[in-house]
């Protein structure tokens, strides 16, 4: 069944014991789009990705991918669904005991019966798409951060998934790698017809490539819109975030008693 909305998150809440991480989130992602999920650290962005991937179940609400409710799937169906999803972890999460080639070939070898020749061709094609075909025989320990993430991206698209999730793909990269990564995300989404969900707090890079943005703060969506909408927004939180202001709705000072009292001056 062709759904226009690949991912639908309806009124989802999730928490660990007393701590409620998400308190009623509504989000949709259309096919073929690059969607960014932004917010400050620890606001629940990564939790959303894990809910979509079925690693955790929502306490309330439904998470639907391609029409199927992820939280209610049995293990076999969940695994079947995961083969159509790719995930790029924050620092690559490459298997350190295998070469770059074996890392990309991993899913092909585990889930298909393709002969080694076919696998070889596919792996080299994926590596070529990310520009690292020449690095096929290197070990993960020999790669720079940016290269490791590109290999992880090649690995994530190995089985031509319909959805790719990126957990902070821009974190800690130099300007050139930033440009390369952003460019890759947009290009792959367009040429492979994927849907990309990018969790990030890098405003500048992501606003260049996204179709739609969701802002998460304190467990709820506080703002959403196209890249232009967000740039023009005058919501205090969005404004502080986009323009990198030191103080605003997210305070500079950690809660503390009055300064004068602390320095034992008046009071």
């Amino acid at each position: 069944m062709q759904h226009d909305n690949l991912v639908e998150i309806e009124d989802v809440a999730f928490g660990y014991g007393a701590r409620q991480v998400l308190k009623g989130v509504n989000l949709t992602a259309k096919r073929g789009q690059v969607i960014a999920i932004m917010g400050s650290s620890g606001c629940g962005k990564t939790t959303l990705l894990r809910l979509i991937g079925g690693q955790i179940k929502p306490g309330q609400g439904t998470v639907r991918v391609a029409g199927e409710s992820v939280g209610e799937l049995d293990p076999a169906s969940l695994y079947r669904l995961r083969r159509k999803m790719g995930m790029l972890f924050q620092f690559g999460a490459l298997f350190t005991d295998m070469s770059v080639f074996d890392n990309v070939a991993f899913q092909l070898r585990e889930h298909t019966d393709l002969p080694e020749d076919a696998i070889r061709d596919l792996v080299l094609m994926k590596l070529h798409a990310v520009g690292l075909r020449g690095a096929a025989q290197l070990m993960p320990a020999e790669l720079s951060g940016g290269m490791a993430r590109r290999v992880a991206l090649a690995r994530a698209i190995a089985l031509e998934p319909m959805l790719v999730m990126y957990d902070e793909p821009f974190a800690g990269l130099d300007p050139i790698s930033l440009g390369v990564t952003g460019n890759l995300i947009r290009r792959l989404t367009d040429t492979l017809g994927l849907t990309s969900l990018v969790v990030t707090h890098d405003v500048q890079e992501s606003l260049k490539i996204v179709d739609y943005v969701y802002f998460v703060s304190e467990g709820v969506i506080v703002a959403e819109g196209s890249a232009d909408d967000i740039r023009a927004s005058d919501l205090p939180f969005v404004h502080q975030f986009v323009h990198g202001e030191a103080d605003g709705p997210v305070p500079f000072h950690y809660p503390a008693p009055s300064y004068a009292v602390d320095l034992r001056l008046g009071g």
């Binding site: 991937g53 690693q55 695994y79 079947r80 995961r82 083969r83 999803m85 790719g86 995930m87 972890f89 924050q90 620092f91 999460a93 490459l94 298997f95 350190t96 991993f106 899913q107 585990e110 889930h111 992880a152």
Partner: peptide
């Protein structure tokens, strides 16, 4: 996160 990655790759 290698174990998580493996889980997400349905292995």
């Amino acid at each position: 996160e290698q174990l998580s990655a493996m889980e997400m790759m349905a292995v």
